[in-house]
């Protein structure tokens, strides 16, 4: 078991009943007991997203315009979908804003 929290900013919380922060336990997968971002995304889509999943994902990754942060760090720097999560990691999804 691993504890993870999620904050979604920039309106993405509207897809999960306006709840911004989720503390969740996600089972680790496979023989090596690794939990990757790829699995986590599909878990979030199934378990947290309540409406319009296309506003969160496109294909197997997040839709364009969503930044993913693992422990306050762009997931591009940790391997995107292949990022392996540890216990107590914090994952944040941010929809970019364009207003002014």
């Amino acid at each position: 078991m691993a504890d993870r929290s999620f904050a979604s900013c920039g309106g993405l919380e509207l897809l999960c009943d306006s709840v911004k922060i989720h503390d969740v336990n996600v089972e680790q997968q496979g023989e090596e007991k690794k939990l990757t971002m790829k699995y986590l995304l599909s878990w979030v889509r199934t378990n947290l997203i309540k409406e319009r999943p296309e506003m969160f994902m496109k294909g197997e990754t997040v839709r364009p315009g969503v930044l993913v942060l693992v422990n306050d760090c762009d997931w591009e720097l940790s391997g995107q979908l292949e990022t392996v999560l540890e216990e107590k990691d914090v994952v944040v999804f941010i929809s970019t804003l364009h207003g002014g």
Binding site: G10, M55, P64, S95, T96, G99
Partner: peptide
Amino acid sequence: GAALGLEGQLTVYNYNGGPCYRCLFPTPPP
């Protein structure tokens, strides 16, 4: 900078070897 509702975002692009807007968002959002 950008703001909407009750949230805002800020960064500096294209400075000192840092990314540009397209580095971060190669594909436009729907």
